[in-house]
């Protein structure tokens, strides 16, 4: 009997303590809303891709270094699905108070053009661009093709090459299409579910070539399994300094993906500036640069204005390409 009573008392205690905690938490939140200097609580970065991927690593490393600048915890949340669409959409509907930042990527441009999502790049206020990765054309190392010229000649002679890419309408599909157009070679596009399976198929000899990010190819290049023939950047890349660009070789192929940060429209100017400054500083920290070097992340800063211009130019290009590919 006595034991039973104690149990009931204990239960009451737990319930009261628990509900007290709830009330205290909500009171604190209501009190804390006004008159605070940004940032006064945890900042979230929405990463629209799954944990462990390139964009996730980029967001997490940046968050780690920017925490010191902002003197606040920064959490990365992976809200994935729809090739990034779900994450972008939840970044847009988040309150425009600067506490939710979205990691934006090339897909912000391509998804709306494909007609798959109900938003457009202009719904975001872009903060800064951190990285730009060009496309890279790679073939198996044991093929006798050593230059882009030989590749073009070989492709024309055979009447076609199969080129693997990371998915229908993905940045590397479009890059391959742009390249095929400018090089004037017949191509069979073979979409895979991401870059890694495409590279695997290349190594296994199931496709003739791939167009993917150079960082993703690095392990295989170093292992001597594949070779990169050319990259789609304006200048040569630091980690493959001997590989020419398409431009050097006389083809106007400059294309690639990028990563940056954005907030929904309507975030107060002061908060936006503070965030931009903090992430800009983080980008220049030694830790982050070292991380980027190891992950073969090609750093390329652009401020909000330049970032927006670039995105708009790219939008027009992508729209044309998609139309030609029948993806629109």
């Amino acid at each position: 009997m006595h034991k039973e009573k104690r149990k009931i008392l204990l239960s009451w205690f737990v319930v009261l303590l628990g509900s007290g905690g709830l009330i205290w938490m909500s009171l604190e939140r209501w009190m804390g809303e006004e008159g605070e200097v940004f940032p006064s609580r945890v900042i979230n970065i929405i990463c629209p891709y799954s944990a462990g991927g390139g964009t996730d690593l980029f967001a997490r490393s940046l968050a780690r270094t920017a925490e010191a600048e902002l003197d606040q915890t920064i959490m990365v949340q992976n809200i994935t699905g729809g090739g990034g669409a779900v994450g972008f959409a939840s970044g847009l509907i988040a309150p425009a108070d600067g506490y939710t930042v979205t990691a934006v990527t090339f897909e912000l441009v391509s998804l709306p053009i494909q007609g798959l999502v109900p938003f457009e790049p202009n719904d975001f206020d872009l903060l800064l661009r951190v990285n730009q990765d060009p496309g890279a054309l790679a073939v198996r190392a044991d093929t006798p093709l050593d230059s882009l010229e030989e590749f073009v000649a070989w492709a024309r002679e055979r009447g076609g090459v199969s080129i693997g890419n990371s998915g229908p309408g993905s940045v590397w599909h479009l890059a391959a299409a742009l390249m095929a157009d400018r090089l004037n070679i017949p191509v069979t596009f073979v979409p895979f579910n991401g870059s890694a399976p495409a590279i695997t198929a290349l190594v296994g000899g199931h496709v003739d070539a791939v167009v993917v990010g150079p960082g993703e190819l690095l392990p295989q290049v170093e292992a001597g399994l594949v070779k990169i023939l050319a990259v789609m950047s304006e200048e040569r890349l630091s980690f493959v300094p001997d590989t020419p660009t398409f431009e050097e070789l006389g083809y106007d192929v400059v294309f690639g993906t990028w990563r940056g940060l954005a907030v929904p429209r309507g975030v107060p100017e002061a908060a936006r500036e503070k965030l931009t400054f903090a992430f800009r500083e983080a980008m220049e920290s030694e830790d982050f640069i070292e991380m980027a070097r190891r992950g073969a992340l090609n750093l390329s800063y652009a401020d909000a204005a330049r970032f927006r211009d670039d995105v708009q130019t790219q939008s027009a290009d992508v729209e044309q390409l998609m139309e030609r590919l029948g993806l629109k």
């Binding site: 009931i8 239960s11 737990v14 319930v15 628990g18 509900s19 905690g21 949340q77």
Partner: peptide, 26 residues
């Protein structure tokens, strides 16, 4: 009676700690 509520509130706090704080689930 009250046991139900005690179990419920305790479980809710534990789940919050596990998922939101430890595993970073929003």
């Amino acid at each position: 009676g009250i046991h139900n509520w005690a179990f419920a509130i305790l479980a809710a706090y534990i789940l919050y700690a596990l998922f939101a704080l430890l595993m970073n689930v929003p």
